[in-house]
Nucleic acid binder design. Structure first.
Lengths: 345, 345
DNA sequence: CTGCAAAAAGCAAACGTTTGCGTAAATATT
DNA sequence: AATATTTACGCAAACGTTTGCTTTTTGCAG
């Protein structure tokens, strides 16, 4: 950034003061006279002085940059999280720099190096699907850079987490399906090496067992990426089963919507023939017909919480805070896709 | 970032070389012996050395940080743009820092100050709705920080732009509606102080006139924020007109979807009674029923283009590139919401 | 051996702040 | 009036790199 930037030195020369005095004045340090301080501020404004934060960062040996690693920015969930992070970061004087792992472990590792090089003050991350172990994050422990995971978290690493109770949420959705009369409930599941998706499967299982329903592995369709297409594919497969399911719990809203479209194309009624529930409460879940029953996963809230937690850890680093885990409450949002009419005789 | 970071000095001491030699070796400078260079790299890896980019940035007087200002991250369009920006920035060795103006001028101004303080290498921005004049961006001209606007751009400022031809796109959609037999076409318009939305209105008008259809101001419903709710509200209002429209062109997909839902609630058929077209080609436009005819605005492409353009300007700054404008091609995507059956006799 | 060019490495300043410590003048305390 | 205290400011080093210039070392022809 060339072009002639005005620096503290320029102000010092102009006022016949030392740079240290200027610096202190600009920070309203008490040891500088009120009059002087005022004049410095005036001149600074007049000359269009802007502090150079990279110099400041170097000297102070810390930045106020928060590094965020998301799988993909353009997935609704993550864009909401980022929005929340940016919101609180901005208010507390932090900057946010963003990287997409695109669910690639290799890229995630490269990003951690970049973050270290850039001296970020703290990190918020959602693990890539490919990521099994988190050695590449462990360096931040020794560097004393706080680290907060959200949603897809690591258990083999000392770090803070903001999550929802996927097991509980999944179990509640499933229970809801049972309550509306479903007896043969299928599940379109996410990548089972990722704990949140494994938990959703477990929650589903638990609800079945709790209600004395059999758990049939054939009723579970596993996908790696939870897209519309995968949802539709899963539904088509489930519809070919000898015994048709009367309810489907999908691991996210995208697959649920794909499933709904496939089911409608097969000329089956939702929810009368098959009830469908999703997970995340994306805006699109109110657009699809019938509107989708789903779990609100509090994405924006999750971003804000992660940022607040991280910043607290950054600022109280001396206090040596133990890592903490926050579990956000989720809401079951009931809409038409599971609102079964009482069967007419 | 305390914790003991290993620096160039540490390497120098360990190898009995000067820091300058180490620095040059790490940059594979030819004036350092091949053997030495190799050993330096080895030791660096062994000791876990990572360059400190803030020191480097200070010395080189430039960063490789690209500042991005978006109205909101969680709007589909912008999240795609950001994704594109991040994608090319990552590949070319740049970092991306993101700020939301939330369509507030005040906040946008504050953000420009932050960016200056942070010595960003270049800026990509989409103007806030509130922004009428761009004085707060002009400082980057004198600082010689390249600036690329996308989508909502400023005309009263020397800066590069990546846009689509809103007038042309709108005119094509409207023509399409006319071609399918619509004769009384309404328009749900965006904030008219924003040029892209004004252009869309103009394009709509132009298509009408070109086809000898009257332009009726009563057929235009203006909104400030193009939300689902506003779309529904606009549609309800249009449905109360003495003469019902037989087609509606909406300034974006959100309003189009709101309109579709309102029209369906009013028990009118789409497209038979009223055809509806949107703008942006959000994923949700394939979810709504009937699927929405719309303009693909190439959001991801726009982000990539803006980033490439910006980085070129950053790196060829000496060349003193004049600001340039790139107009991306748009596609008219025809779906069920305008696909009228030939009227049966 | 000498001289000389090329190769390899070192010196030291600079980037713009921050900050511990020191000091002079102004004020307060006996 | 002499000492102690406070107030207001300056000095200079440091943060970790980069880089123009200088110096040393090496290789080699004369």
């Amino acid at each position: 950034m060339p072009g002639t930037r005005v620096t503290i030195k320029d102000l010092a020369k102009r006022m016949n003061l030392s740079v240290s005095t200027i610096s202190r004045a600009l920070h309203n340090h008490p040891s500088i006279g009120a009059e002087t301080t005022k004049e410095v501020w005036q001149l600074a404004k007049q000359l269009g002085y802007f502090p150079n934060s990279v110099a400041s960062n170097l000297r102070r040996r810390k930045t106020n940059m928060i590094g965020v690693i998301v799988p993909r920015i353009d997935i609704t969930f993550h864009s909401y999280v980022i929005s929340g992070v940016e919101e609180v970061a901005y208010k507390l004087g932090y900057n946010v720099t963003i990287y997409q792992s695109r669910d690639s472990l290799e890229r995630e590792i490269a990003i951690t190096s970049i973050l270290q090089t850039n001296m970020v003050a703290g990190i918020i991350a959602c693990l890539a699907l490919e990521t099994q172990n988190c050695n590449h994050f462990s360096r931040f422990n020794s560097l004393r850079v706080p680290l907060v995971f959200y949603d897809r978290v690591s258990n083999d690493l000392e770090a803070s987490k903001v999550i929802i109770d996927d097991f509980d949420a999944a179990s509640r959705v499933t229970q809801h399906l049972i309550d509306t009369g479903c007896r043969k409930i299928a599940h379109i599941a996410g990548c089972q090496t990722t704990s949140i998706f494994a938990s959703r499967l477990e929650g589903y299982k638990a609800a079945l067992l709790r209600n004395n329903l059999v758990f049939d592995p054939a009723m579970v369709y596993c996908t790696t990426n939870l897209t519309y297409e995968e949802g539709a594919k899963g539904a088509r497969k489930l519809l070919k089963l000898p015994e048709l399911p009367d309810g489907i719990f999908c691991a996210n809203d995208y697959t649920a919507i794909g499933a709904i479209q496939a089911i409608k194309k097969a000329n089956l009624r939702i929810p009368d023939d098959i009830a469908v529930a999703g997970f995340s409460n994306y805006p699109v879940s109110t657009i699809i017909e019938p509107a989708l029953t789903t779990i609100d996963d509090r994405a924006f809230e999750m971003g804000k919480t992660a940022a607040r937690m991280l910043i607290r850890q950054i600022e109280e680093r001396d206090a040596n805070i133990a890592s903490e885990t926050i579990v956000l409450k989720t809401d079951l949002i009931i809409r038409e896709s599971t609102r079964r009419e009482p069967v007419r005789p």
